[in-house]
Each structure stands twice: as C-alpha cells, then as structure tokens.
C-alpha cells in the first residue's frame, strides 16, 4: 500500500495473508492477500497462483497484523482446495477473470473461528456496486512504493475512490484494457494506491451500509501513478462462479 497508514488486523479482520512454503524449510515467503468470505473459504486473485498452482505449496494465516511473525489470536491453515478461474487470461497490462478461491483448514481439520481479529466480509448483491466516487478501503502487506523491493512488516490500509468505467477507459488512463468485469479506484491526488504484494487483497466498499468485498486487487501500471488507477476484479460479477464452487454453503453472506 502506497501512502495510507499502518493498522491492526482488528480493523480488517477478514484479511488473509497467503504465504509460499520454502522447499528448503526456510521462513515462509509472503505471496498475496486474500479475504475470508465464509468460515472455510478465502477469495484471492488467480494471478498470484497461476505459475505454481499446487495447493500444497501455500499456507494461509488469519488474524495477522505483522507479517512473518507470531500474532496472538492468529490462525494458520493449509489449503485444502485451490480453485483458479478457468477463463483467467493475461493481456498486455490487464488480468482477466482474476479471481481465485482457497478452501482452508487447520492441521486438525477446522475452518476459521470468529474472534476480535477474524471475521468474514460480506459479498455484494449480484451486479451491485457502490456508486462512483465512493470511498473504499484497501489493505495489505504490499510495497509502500513502486521502487521498493521490501514488504513492510506491519499491515497497512488506505482509502481510494471508485472511478467510472468511462473515466478509466480514457486513452490516457487504460483505454480498452478495461472491461465491465473490472473496477477502477484511485486517490484524486494520486497519493495512495495498492501496489505489488497487495494482489489478491480486498477492496471494501459500503453497500446498503454494510462493508462489502467489492473488488480484489488485480493490476495497474506502477503504483499511485497519475492517470493510472488501481484495477480490481469486480466481485459482484463473479457471484455465480463463487456459488458454483462454494455451493450454498451457509455462512456466505450475500
């Protein structure tokens, strides 16, 4: 996250930290963010996993304010299922259908338990998004600037505004790289944005007065670059896909 502020996971209790195991047994490598959408399921981005699509290579933590550290109240999970979108595609800049589902379970076969630092995030109503100009929250352990090469130790969050497709499709923004299954969001002063390492994490907008997972951090040109908004997978357009994989499992809050 470029700009914004450091926070604690109690402020974003649905945030999931997804790590890659190290073959040599060394420390885990932070990979991407995710969002807890029901007790057993985390939503993230397919581009995070497409090159190494083996569920055994990943570990998911909930309740973490500090990366690669023990956080009181955290929960650690193996990935029981790793579901990548079958129509995922990479363009020059854009990622299409950039959504993934991870079924999580502890070493004793449990799913997530609610606590001060662990909570699910609501899914949007079908094809319903917050209005253009709405303030939405982003969260992650991603880089604090485009030129950084280290991730911050502490969780960050910031606020960006939803941008219309019309504005985002302008030639000096992203032109035809943008389609209706994506959402664009940015800071009017181009001072804060999601960045590398925030991929898969949440864009939380209020819909009907409820914090809702409206977007999944997907792609963008640089970070906090003028006329280059962050681009997010538009979750309200993927509810059938989510449903088809999670089923009518209770606890999915639509």
């Amino acid at each position: 996250i470029v700009g914004g502020e450091f926070t604690v996971v109690e402020n974003q209790p649905w945030f999931a930290a997804i790590y890659m195991k190290n073959k040599g047994g060394g420390p885990l490598s932070f990979k991407c963010g995710g969002s807890l959408i029901s007790a057993c399921w985390v939503a993230s981005a397919t581009h995070c996993f497409i090159n190494i699509p083996n569920k055994e290579d990943y570990v998911v933590y909930l309740g973490q304010s500090k990366r690669n550290s023990y956080n009181p109240g955290e929960m650690k999970f193996e990935v029981e299922q790793l579901i990548l979108h079958e129509d995922y595609r990479e363009d020059t800049l854009a990622y299409h259908n950039d959504i993934a589902l991870l079924k999580i379970r502890t070493s004793t076969g449990q799913c997530a338990q609610p606590s001060r630092s662990i909570q699910t995030i609501c899914l949007p109503p079908r094809f319903v998004d917050a209005p253009v100009g709405s303030d939405c929250e982003i969260t992650g352990f991603g880089q604090e600037s485009h030129t950084d090469y280290l991730y911050p130790k502490n969780l960050k969050m910031s606020v960006v505004k939803l941008i219309s497709h019309q504005e985002c499709k302008q030639p000096h923004y992203y032109g035809s790289e943008i389609n209706y299954k994506m959402l664009c969001a940015a800071d009017p002063e181009w001072k804060t944005d999601s960045c590398m390492g925030d991929s898969g994490g949440p864009l939380i907008c209020n819909i009907n007065d409820r914090p809702t997972l409206s977007g999944i951090v997907s792609w963008g040109r640089g970070c906090a670059e003028k006329n280059k908004p962050g681009v997010y997978t538009r979750v309200s357009f993927f509810l059938s896909w989510i449903h088809s994989h999670i089923g009518e499992e209770n606890g999915l809050a639509f």
Partner: peptide
C-alpha cells in the same frame, strides 16, 4: 432469531470488534 448476516458459526460478515486492542 439471529439477524440474517450472522451465520451458524458465529460470523457476522463485515462486523469489526468494537475497537482495536491498542
């Protein structure tokens, strides 16, 4: 009857603890 957004595992989507621990 629990409000609709509370599921049987006690999750209340989108709800945050009243205030952060510190």
């Amino acid at each position: 009857k629990k409000p609709s957004s509370v599921d049987q595992r006690g999750f209340q989507c989108g709800q945050k603890a009243l205030r952060p621990r510190f």
